[in-house]
Design a protein around this nucleic acid. Structure first.
Lengths: 235, 235
DNA sequence: ATCGGCTATTTGTATGACAAATTGATGCCG
DNA sequence: CGGCATCAATTTGTCATACAAATAGCCGAT
């Protein structure tokens, strides 16, 4: 089966394929994988390429290899849940409601705090980046352009905190927004509904008003949560 | 925590060695690594083992390989800053004050929210785990025992949120506490100073009082921040 | 029944060969 | 002289094979 988008190289393909299988639960936790020679043959790659992929999956906490025993799928508690790939794999199949809730919960914790911190510490350049993203949202003419600009806005905000640990959480925010774009009922008429809220956040960060920024962001996430809820119950 | 000194296997060693070199800055960003054949020889491993290690470092965002061009160290903004290994490597050399500040900032954002969420959603079993950890802290007779129990307390709290994304942030909390243990001036007389604060958090989670738990945790982290500050300025 | 060593199995490592990509040079042509 | 296509050299990507190291489980001795 050919993946969408460019196929970088073989071991990357293997990573994606095995990763998806494991995270989706098709390869249950605790279960042993076939031994490398067999698995390699079954996937039509050399043992070398397979192993390079397995080392990466191992680093993500998905599997565990030991001599003589073989390779087993590890329990979910050991997965690097914040890894961008793992998040993507969890969303590959239609994400469960409970996972969406957890993503929103992460936004509720991270983004208001990030907005406040950004308001305190943003540099002029970082403010400009935020402004550019906002303008792109304002002038977006279709849903795709909006989506790209929206992601850029939230990433710029995280970067403006000047805390790279916080910035690395963008993978979570990105995934959360991604599922939101899929789930929320939006069309050409209303996809810009959230624009005023973004302006308030931007404005508070511009004026260096941490608490205003926090409150504005709390409201933005709360609204997006209620939108999702409406969608979930209606489904 | 990874066994200190224990050599699991070759590629693991290579991962650690190269990872440390890159994160510490000894291998500057943008710089090209020697080509695989040379680098493998220089590290006394086969190209196979080296490549398995490089795939992992690549997955952590530290390096990037392309045919003909070779392998280059990526910019810090691309690193998986939340990866346990990357965090450990950043602390391997004496962590800078600014990094310690960022770690504390992460605690300030994550832990109060986690305490509140845990108070809302903890199961009886999760509460028991928290209680066990607290009792271990209370009965700790030396600094080592306290350290282990303290980590267990914070991990149990994160698990009690029933949000695995939040739980995965334990790698950050663990690193933050680790640097705190190193930095703060504690000895056999005062290492239990924080016990009452932990009790308040535990008690609030037991009674399912989210806001009380949040406030207690805010205070705990604030105190630990001021302890660190005192240490930093005195140094 | 317990202990200790043996063996079979599986991952770990090494080596050598070739494929694929792509940069930079080379040389042709306008 | 400049622009373009072509080609060669270099580096990572992939494959195949062989052997080393670890160890779970068996087997035999006590």
């Amino acid at each position: 089966m050919v993946k969408l988008g460019a196929v970088r190289n073989l071991h990357h393909q293997v990573i994606q394929e095995l990763g998806r299988l494991i995270v989706s639960g098709e390869l249950a936790a605790g279960k042993s994988l076939p031994r490398e020679e067999i698995l390699a043959e079954r996937m039509n790659v050399s043992r070398t390429a397979l192993r390079e992929a397995m080392k990466v999956l191992s680093a993500k906490g998905l599997i565990e290899s030991r001599q003589k025993t073989g390779t087993r799928v590890r329990d979910e508690t050991h997965w690097n849940q914040l890894d961008a790939d793992v998040l993507a794999w969890r969303c590959a199949s239609m994400p469960t409601d409970s996972f969406v809730d957890k993503l929103v919960e992460m936004r509720e914790i991270i983004e208001p705090a990030a907005a406040a911190t950004a308001a305190r510490r943003r540099s002029p350049e970082q403010l400009t980046a935020l402004e550019v993203a906002y303008e792109a949202m304002a002038s977006a003419e279709d849903l795709d352009a909006w989506t790209v600009a929206d992601l850029a806005f939230h990433e710029s905000m995280l970067k403006a905190t000047n805390n790279e640990l916080l910035t690395s959480l963008f993978s979570v925010i990105e995934t959360a927004l991604g599922t939101y774009f899929v789930l929320s009922a939006r069309n050409s008429a209303n996809f810009k509904n959230a624009l005023p809220q973004h302006f308030k956040v931007y404005e508070a960060i511009r004026r260096k008003q941490p608490e205003v920024a926090r409150q504005a962001m709390i409201k933005m996430v709360a609204d997006s949560r209620s939108n999702i809820r409406r969608q979930q119950s209606g489904k």
